[in-house]
Nucleic acid binder design. Structure first.
Lengths: 353, 353
DNA sequence: TTGAAAGCGCTAACAG
DNA sequence: CTGTTAGCGCTTTCAA
């Protein structure tokens, strides 16, 4: 009665649901008047089948509306045509775009996609996510290593399965596709400096580790100019925290230029500044990061660095598929985000300082 | 040699990838000194297992890092713990949020999620998507019936599998969760009218069928007031088309109030108006729809109707899971989006008309 | 409670 | 080129 152990399998199973029975390969074989392996051969194209039989099989398949069972195929062949996306989030801009890119190219290659999310870096969540991936007999996994949960999940996978990471910071070890953020962040910061601002404040989005490329680039640019780094402001993913920080920063006359971790944050910060009666860029310059679709529509339109997350996702999938085919070494492709200058930056105001 | 038939299975298979072999149920059984079915029993909880053996099995599972193969389980049991999300898009705001809601609640119920996208309503694409769903042995599917591809895909499924639709317009036939948009759209339109605008123009986003709830509501409100409906402007999902329309509408002095199909469109339209030198809301009032996270940050902050897509997704999943358990009839839950009034609407300007 | 035997739908040798 | 025979990892009878 009483249970002294506590493996996850002591828990009740989820309510699984019965599958509607549909035509099987033997139904097709019977109708076509051939053996089951012959049907399999036309399915996989693994071996030659006579024109005549192939036609009969195709006809039977069409007649029965037959679709091979992916589960049975993976079991019998030991090969899978499904990949997993492991991510901490599915709906935020960069994440959603990266997922779109992965899904798109996976589908083009004939792979199905399962999505598993790991919400936090808590040990049980990370383990559950890794388990979910492993249980599904996927060929490989693309992990969005944008944040601590992503990093932890990647580690939990322990290369038990082919994996590639999508990331903003190059890093040795795992195959990955990276969008090199740090140079672009530095360039954005220097743009602000070159306008005449004596320093640049930074609003940091939740980082992937101790520091992400955006923050690193900002710090780097400041260092290059011998400017001490002002205290960092941290925002959550909730834009309203960016708004609060905007209000706070606006009250500090030393603040004339702000580098935000992403465009949504920049919009929140600008709105906060706006609400104190100050103007962007006349009083304070603000830059974002990502080139969000709404960045050019915002008033003022955002100066930012363009990140092509979907492309990152496509690269990652390509890497994974190459890895699966045994091709290597994989070129670690690094893309540098192009800067786009719009309306949210200007010379420092004489009204401040 | 030459092929005269052309079933999809004449095409080459995707490169499938070999799976790393891991511990199987027999490994566990052997290590625990029990039979395979006994291990299965502790896994599924289907039958009683003695305390002693259960403990040994648990220990063996832990020692081997064993994870049951979902593919083998589904094959043997004929029951699945995976559901599919069928959507035309994964990254756009409403879609991404709905997907998040579905994934979240599916995960909470112990279900894995596969995502299949159907990009257009082209017959081959729709069929491919339906096939992908059916091949995966999923327990059921949640389809985002937000647009023509979604509608077509749902139809292609032919109730070959338990399905629930997520939608903005109630409709008989399929189980569904709906966010009733038409009343909110009407209310938003009437808000504009009550401010003194003599008519309200409409910028329509790509609709799910001949007409979506937003457009219907707008039309309804105008009719109630005996106002003829002005010509509709259609935008694509690309915000720049909204911008163009904003510019165009601004040049028409008859336009003093605009109801946009969603907030992103509203932002594009406002920016277009702004670029002609006119002001929102002083010269023209604009309302959006959805209450996008950036809507309160935009300058001017958007008057809009809040849509909780994630909640819609959760409702849908709940419906599907209930359906799978054979519970019914399902309450068709309809949520009416609450209006939120902000800065983008005002009295009509004396400068126009 | 437990194990032996059968089988889910499919692919992989292996003869022929 | 084609059919026969095994067997993928698991669950499900069925006896014991």
């Amino acid at each position: 009665m009483s249970q002294t152990t506590s493996s996850p399998y002591d828990e009740p199973m989820p309510h699984s649901a019965p599958l509607d029975r549909t035509a099987t390969i033997s139904d097709v074989a019977r109708l076509a008047g051939v053996s089951v392996p012959t049907v399999s051969r036309v399915l996989t194209g693994a071996a030659r089948v006579s024109e005549d039989r192939r036609r009969r099989v195709d006809k039977a398949i069409a007649a029965l509306g037959y679709r091979p069972s992916a589960a049975a195929q993976v079991l019998a062949s030991g090969r899978s045509t499904t990949i997993a996306i492991l991510a901490a989030n599915t709906s935020r801009y960069g994440y959603a775009e990266a997922i779109r890119g992965v899904e798109e190219s996976a589908r083009a290659a004939g792979f199905a996609v399962i999505i598993v999310v790991v919400e936090s870096e808590r040990d049980d969540e990370v383990r559950a996510a890794a388990d979910a991936v492993l249980r599904q007999s996927v060929a490989g996994v693309v992990v969005l290593k944008f944040d601590p949960p992503g990093v932890a999940a990647l580690k939990a996978l322990q290369s038990a399965i082919p994996a590639v990471a999508l990331s903003g910071v190059p890093e040795a070890g795992v195959p990955q596709a990276v969008l090199d953020e740090s140079e672009a962040a530095a360039a954005l910061t220097e743009h602000l400096l070159s306008l005449g601002h004596s320093t640049v404040h930074h609003v940091r989005i939740p980082p992937s580790g101790k520091e992400d490329g955006r923050t690193t680039g900002w710090r780097l640019a400041l260092q290059r100019h011998g400017i001490p780094t002002p205290p960092i402001e941290d925002v959550s993913w909730d834009v309203s925290t960016a708004h609060e920080i905007g209000v706070r920063l606006a009250s500090d006359p030393a603040v004339t230029a702000i580098f935000c971790g992403n465009d949504e944050t920049a919009m929140g910060v600008i709105r906060g500044i706006h609400d104190t009666g100050l103007n962007v860029p006349d009083d304070i310059s603000v830059v974002g990061f990502d080139d969000h679709p709404l960045a050019p529509m915002f008033i003022p339109a955002l100066t930012t660095a363009r990140q092509d997350f979907a492309e990152l996702g496509r690269h990652g999938t390509a890497q994974l598929l190459a890895l699966l085919k045994g091709e290597s070494p994989l070129a670690l492709e690094t893309v540098e985000p192009p800067l786009v200058f719009r309306e949210s930056t200007a010379l420092p105001s004489s009204r401040r300082r």
